[in-house]
C-alpha cells in the first residue's frame, strides 16, 4: 500500500497534495492507496476519494492544531506502520519538507526529496529528482523496505479517479513533543507560496527600484499569478524579502508560466526556474541569456510592456 500524507488549507486539500495522491493512485494500479490527514480538524478530507483514495485516514485532535515536527512525525510514522504501507508520499510543501525526512528516519526508510517522476520497480519506488538546483537529474533507486518521497508541486497532475474513500480514524499518539510552532508572523496575505504557484511574474535588476514591483503585482493580479524576484533584486536593498527569491540560493520553482521581467538570466537564477513549462522573457537587452530559455521573448522596455500586458489581461479577465 502507498500512504499519502495530505495537507488541508482553508478546509480544502492542497493541490500539491492532490498531485501526490493522484501519482500514488497511478503507481498503485489495483493495490490500495490511503490518504492521511493530520490536524485539529480534518474537515474537507473526504474529497480525497475523488482523487483515488481507497481509504481516508484521519488523525485529529486539539493537540494537532499547531505544527510540531516531532509530534507530526510520530503520527505519520504510526500511520505507516498501522497500515503496513511500504511507500509514503507527500507534497514538497514547507511542512512536507520539514516532516517527511524526520518520518523517514523514524522508519529507517530512504528519502528522496522533490521528486519529479516516480515508478515502481520490483515493488520499490524509483524516483527521478533534480539535483544541482535543476542543472541535472538523478535517478534514485531505493533499497530500504519502506520508501519515502516528497513530490515537487506543479509537476504531477491531479487527476480525478473516484474510489471508495472509506474513512478510518487513528488515535493521536501520546508524544511529549519537544518543539512546536507558537505563532505565525508576517502572513503572506493568503498569497500562494512560490513553489506551488501556477503562474509567476518575476522581476530583476531591470525593475530599477522596489516600488516598481507594483507593475509586477498588477500583472500577477490580472493573470492569477504570484510575484518572484531574482537574487540581484533581493540583494539590491529594495526591501524585497528573500522568501521571494527564485534561484539556486532561493526557491526552485516549476510553474506552468514564468514571466521574467528585467532578468538577465544568470546561471544562479536559471537554476531556480528552468523547470517552468512556459517561459516568457521581457528584457531590453536582446543578447540577455534569458532569451535562450524563453518560449516567447519580448525585446523592449518593461516599463512600457508590463502596463500594456496588464491592461490587455484585464480586458480578457484572465485571473482565475
Amino acid at each position: 500500500m502507498i500512504l499519502v500524507f495530505c495537507e488541508l488549507k482553508d478546509g480544502k486539500i492542497r493541490k500539491a497534495s492532490l498531485e501526490a495522491l493522484s501519482e500514488a493512485r497511478k503507481l498503485s494500479g489495483e493495490a490500495p492507496v490511503a490518504a492521511l490527514f493530520v490536524g485539529a480538524s480534518c474537515a474537507g478530507s473526504s474529497d480525497a476519494a475523488a482523487f483515488g483514495a481507497d481509504a481516508i485516514i484521519k488523525v485529529e485532535g486539539p493537540a494537532l492544531g499547531a505544527y510540531s515536527s516531532d509530534l507530526f512525525a510520530a503520527v505519520i510514522a504510526d500511520a505507516v506502520k498501522a497500515k503496513g504501507a511500504t511507500a509514503l508520499l507527500g507534497a514538497a510543501t514547507p511542512l512536507g519538507k520539514d516532516v517527511l525526512p524526520r518520518v523517514a528516519a523514524k522508519l529507517d526508510a530512504g528519502y528522496a526529496a522533490e521528486v519529479t517522476s516516480l515508478a515502481l520497480v520490483g515493488g520499490k519506488l524509483q524516483a527521478i529528482r533534480p539535483v544541482y538546483a535543476g542543472k541535472a537529474f538523478a535517478t534514485v533507486d531505493f533499497t530500504s523496505g519502506i520508501q519515502v518521497a516528497s513530490t515537487r508541486p506543479n509537476v504531477f497532475s491531479a487527476t480525478e479517479c473516484p474510489k471508495a474513500g472509506a474513512v478510518e480514524t487513528l488515535p493521536v499518539p501520546a508524544v511529549d513533543f519537544k518543539a512546536i510552532v507558537k505563532e505565525i508572523l508576517a502572513k503572506g496575505g493568503g498569497k500562494q507560496d512560490l513553489t506551488e504557484a501556477d503562474v509567476i511574474v518575476a522581476g530583476g535588476r531591470g525593475l530599477k527600484e522596489g516600488a516598481n514591483f507594483k507593475l509586477l503585482e498588477d500583472l500577477a493580479d490580472a493573470i492569477g499569478g504570484v510575484v518572484g524576484a531574482s537574487r540581484a533584486a533581493v540583494d539590491a536593498g529594495w526591501g524585497i524579502p528573500h522568501s521571494m527569491q527564485v534561484g539556486q540560493t532561493g526557491k526552485v520553482v516549476s510553474p506552468t508560466l514564468y514571466i521574467a521581467c528585467g532578468i538577465s538570466g544568470a546561471i544562479q537564477h536559471v537554476a531556480g526556474m528552468s523547470g517552468s513549462k512556459v517561459i516568457v522573457a521581457i528584457n531590453k537587452d536582446p543578447e540577455a541569456p534569458i532569451f535562450k530559455l524563453a518560449n516567447y521573448g519580448i525585446v523592449g522596455d518593461l516599463f512600457e510592456v508590463l502596463p500594456e500586458l496588464t491592461k490587455a489581461a484585464k480586458a480578457l479577465s484572465l485571473a482565475k
Binding site: Y111, K135, T139, F142, K292, L293, N295
Partner: peptide, 19 residues
C-alpha cells in the same frame, strides 16, 4: 537506503520566438 543509478542533464529547451 538508496543509490543513484543515473545522472542525466536536462533536455535543452526548444528555440523560442521573439515578438
Amino acid at each position: 537506503a538508496m543509490a543513484v543509478s543515473a545522472l542525466t542533464l536536462p533536455p535543452a529547451r526548444p528555440e523560442g520566438r521573439k515578438l
